[in-house]
Design a protein around this nucleic acid. Structure first.
Length: 519
RNA sequence: GGGCUCGUAGCUCAGCUCGGCAGAGCGUCUGGCUUUUAACCAGACGGUCAGGGGUUCAAAUCCCCUCGAGCCCGCCA
């Protein structure tokens, strides 16, 4: 792969990381479970996964970790929370009850949903919970160092961010033993492993830094964590990357305080939902990977992110966008199996949740076709026969593939499909039949007669339809339009003969008669 | 105040790192499949590369400015 003219962005960055950091790498993601972990957050860990994979593919020795920041305080009562969560604002997420009562804590609840989806999407990071790391004393050495170097750290933050920090500031946030808040405490002094603090709740106490009674503030926590876990590569959002942001201060704190080279950074852009704005749990604009798995094939969920460079903004369009995605994905799939463009083929490999693509090309019935078939008939065999008729299904293909795809499409139709992609056989005579001409009505009447007289197979009915309108000196379009207007209330539809035969014949006869009698 | 990303065909975008004839898919239109389409095949239409200036034999690509869209940072993480 090295030396190829076109590499995937993950391969380029992996090459850089290997050059800067050597063969052994730890790729970290640092998502915090402050609410439903959405697709925008997923970009971070997928980016990390891709880098990890790409490094290993270039003969590196890399592992993927997720530092789960569950010691982060709840910032506010998010729209999805009950108002009585007010009392938990400021407490670490691991110490707040699960809003739905099914897990040990708030953090646990949102983490576990996400972790399940991750494994379906082929990502299995080693998880390091910040709460555990603090409680087990893994941070002790770095906290002590931070406290000792408090004036240096203060100076770094002041220089990089151009702000002034109060003279007696300490780089430590104790968790109030009384009210459990971390955002309302102020460290006043320290001695050895003890920090003396005051809390807005009125409690004054001391915190032992070895067992999770205090945490480092973010700007110091991050570099400390790099050192503790040996992080060499880390993707993070542009919020951290802004001038004077936490990567800028983290870089210097890592080098000057912890004597550690900061990780190779990969900055990624946010993901927006078309028409709604950037995803953010605090705004309630969220689409989680777990939810997406109910209507997107898993490889597409990865593909959306894989195909874009991390610094490109992504606007996720779950409506028409789905059609584009499916078309585009076919192209990269073809590139892989037919030895097309290297970069596309690589995008395909990286999009699959599985380690390796299957030996032969998976089924590729056109998405729109499948959407139509799914709406037309309701069972697997009928859908299969529609696909076979158009040459899009092979008996060698597995039913499970199709079953799964149909399930996703049904959900998509219910939730996101644009109206003009949907059709349904109208229960009652559609209003649009008033568009029918005299001739068209007569034609429908004749069709009703024919259906009444005899049973037909699809070919026979198709021929009858053609004979009928040709005898009447009608245009094909005119004739078919009348059928669709009567049944669907729209002027086009699925192949008429097969469509009619998939419905109840008595129902169709009645409908055609009714339509033929409209004034 | 500072920073980032984006602006290329009706739509979604690639191309920009490293300058060399403006591209793809979808849509549309036309034709084909001796029988319709929202299957399939072929072809066509379609662009002041946001605007202006500069560098260059040569600029979508590099530099500067302007406009427009979205976002981020300012002792929260």
């Amino acid at each position: 792969m090295l030396g190829e003219k076109k590499m995937h962005w993950a391969d380029e960055k992996a090459e850089n990381a290997l050059r800067d950091k050597g063969r052994e790498n730890v790729v970290a993601s640092g998502i915090s479970p402050s609410g439903p972990i959405h697709y925008g957050n997923f970009r971070e860990i997928l980016t990390a996964d891709l880098l990890n994979k790409a490094i290993n593919d270039q003969d590196g020795d890399s592992k993927l970790i997720w530092v789960l920041d569950d010691y982060d305080p709840l910032r506010k009562v998010y729209p999805f929370l009950d108002s009585d969560y007010e009392k938990h604002v400021g407490k670490p997420l691991s110490k707040i009850p699960d809003p739905e009562g099914c897990h040990e804590s708030y953090a646990e609840h949102y983490t576990s949903q996400f972790v399940d989806a991750l494994s379906d999407l082929g990502i299995e990071p080693a998880i390091h919970k910040a709460s555990k790391m603090y409680k087990k004393g893994e941070y002790t050495e770095e906290i002590v160092k931070a406290l000792k170097n408090r004036s240096k750290i203060k100076k770094i933050i002041e220089e990089v961010t151009n702000r002034t920090i109060s003279e007696n500031w300490l780089p430590i946030k104790p968790i109030c033993q009384d009210c459990k808040n971390v955002s309302t405490t102020e460290a006043k002094d320290y001695e050895g492993k003890k920090v003396y603090y005051e809390c807005e709740c009125g409690y004054n106490g001391e915190a032992d830094i070895r067992n999770g009674e205090a945490k480092l503030p973010w700007r110091v926590d991050w570099p400390a964590r790099w050192k503790i876990l040996g992080v060499t590569v880390e993707p993070f959002g542009k919020d951290h990357a802004a001038d004077g942001g936490s990567y800028d201060t983290g870089k210097r704190i890592a080098k000057e305080i912890y004597d550690y080279e900061p990780p190779y950074p990969v900055v990624y852009e946010q993901i927006a939902l078309k028409g709604e704005g950037e995803m953010s749990s605090s705004e309630g604009i969220t689409l989680t990977p777990a939810k997406m798995l109910e209507f997107f094939p898993s490889e597409i969920i990865r593909y959306i992110i894989v195909r874009k460079k991390p610094n490109r903004h992504i606007e996720l369009d779950t409506g028409y966008g789905m059609l584009h995605l499916m078309d585009d994905f076919k192209e990269v799939e073809d590139a892989y199996y037919e030895e097309g463009e290297k970069e596309k083929s690589r995008i395909y490999e990286l999009s699959l949740p599985e380690k390796n693509p299957r030996d032969s090309k998976p089924p590729q019935p056109p998405f729109k076709h499948l959407v139509n078939a799914t709406q037309l008939v309701d069972n697997l065999d009928s859908i299969k026969s529609i696909l076979k008729r158009t040459g899009h299904w092979d008996d060698e293909y597995e039913d499970t593939w199709l079953n799964n795809r149909i399930k996703l499409i049904r959900n998509w139709l219910d939730w996101f499909a644009p109206e003009d992609m949907k059709f349904e056989v109208k229960e009652n005579l559609p209003d649009k039949v008033e568009k029918l001409s005299k001739k068209q009505k007569k034609f429908l009447g004749k069709l009703a007669d024919l259906l009444e007289e005899n049973d037909y197979n699809d070919e026979q009915l198709n021929n009858k339809i053609f004979n009928t309108f040709q005898d009447m000196d009608m245009e094909a379009r005119e004739a078919f339009e009348s059928i669709y207007l009567a049944l669907l209330g729209r002027d086009s539809g699925p192949r008429a003969a097969w469509f009619i035969l998939s419905l109840d014949t008595g129902f169709v006869i009645n409908r055609f008669r009714e339509a033929s009698k409209v004034n």
